[in-house]
Simulated assay, not measured.
Amino acid sequence: MTDTRVLVLVGSLRAGSVNRQLAETAVAHAPEGAELTVFDGLAVVPFYNEDVDVPGATIPGADELRAAAAAADALLLVTPEYNGTMPAVLKNAIDWISRPYGAGAVSGKPVAVISASPSPNGAQWAHAEARKAVGIAGGKVVEDVTLSIGATHEKFGAGHPSENAEIVAEVTKAVAELVAAAKDLVDA
């Protein structure tokens, strides 16, 4: 059987961000039969503009994002919280993969969200906003995945989340549930 391909979109562009490290943890602990790939090009995706998003147009950055999302069986969004909501870079990615309306690269695909922040809140507002936006965009939000990790400075300090057995277990479980949802769609 072919591996379930999961595209991971990280809402922080900072190389050392905890959210990036959580994405790396997800990749490193992917369940058997799953292939997770972090999309590294969000920084070059232009802001969504329907005037340039026309049939036949070549849009560097956005074309690569759409192709990666189209090739994936499921998507994992990993987001911090900026001013009470998800970062613009993640919202922009959702906007691009939602188009064309009703037939975007995310349409009908299982999507899970993991959020993390230094606050005790665990980026829950960003988590909710990401789930809302990607659901409206046509993704099938995996309702059972509600992983929000708060107090990251206290939990990880200067360490990597992959050094925390509890977090590894939670991330692994979230990814396993996403992969199971993708397999359920194939089997349906």
Rank of each mutant, 00 (worst) to 15 (best):
V89M: 10
G150D: 03
V78M: 08
P80E: 07
A71S: 13
R131Y: 11
G84Y: 11
F156C: 05
G157T: 04
E64F: 07
R131W: 10
T79A: 04
E64Y: 06
A71K: 13
P120R: 08
A67E: 13
A128T: 15
S119L: 14
A116G: 12
N92P: 00
E81P: 00
D63W: 03
R99F: 15
V145Q: 02
A57T: 09
V89W: 07
G61V: 11
R66L: 09
P80L: 10
P46C: 09
E170G: 01
E129T: 12
D95A: 07
K140T: 09
Y82S: 05
F156V: 09
I59V: 12
V145K: 01
P110Y: 00
T79Q: 05
D95C: 10
P118I: 15
Y82N: 09
N83Q: 10
N49M: 12
K140D: 10
A123I: 07
P60C: 15
K140F: 13
P100Q: 14
A88I: 01
P110D: 01
A93E: 03
E166M: 06
A72G: 05
V171T: 04
V52P: 08
Y82V: 13
P80Y: 06
R99L: 15
N92I: 12
A70E: 14
L77R: 04
A130M: 07
R131L: 06
S148F: 02
D53W: 08
I114Q: 02
E154Y: 08
A165M: 00
D51F: 00
G135W: 02
S98W: 12
E81N: 06
G102L: 03
I114T: 00
A112S: 14
T58N: 06
D73T: 14
N121F: 15
E154C: 01
A165G: 03
D144W: 00
I136L: 15
A133D: 11
V89F: 05
S98P: 09
I114S: 01
G157D: 04
E64P: 03
V111P: 01
M86K: 07
M86D: 04
P60W: 15
R131N: 08
P60R: 14
A72M: 03
K109F: 09
P60V: 12
I136G: 05
E81M: 13
P87H: 15
E143F: 00
Y48V: 10
A158H: 13
N164W: 04
A68N: 12
G122R: 08
G104V: 14
A68F: 08
F47E: 11
V106T: 05
G108F: 05
P80V: 05
A57Q: 11
A116M: 02
S119P: 04
N121P: 00
E166H: 06
V113R: 01
M86F: 10
T146C: 02
P55S: 05
A112F: 02
A165Y: 01
A57C: 08
L65K: 11
P60Q: 13
A158V: 11
E170V: 00
I59S: 03
A74G: 07
V171S: 02
V142Q: 06
V145W: 00
E166R: 07
P87Q: 15
L147P: 01
D73L: 10
F156N: 03
D51L: 00
E129F: 14
S98E: 10
I136A: 12
V134I: 15
G159H: 08
G108C: 06
A137K: 03
V54S: 12
A69Y: 05
Q124F: 14
T152N: 06
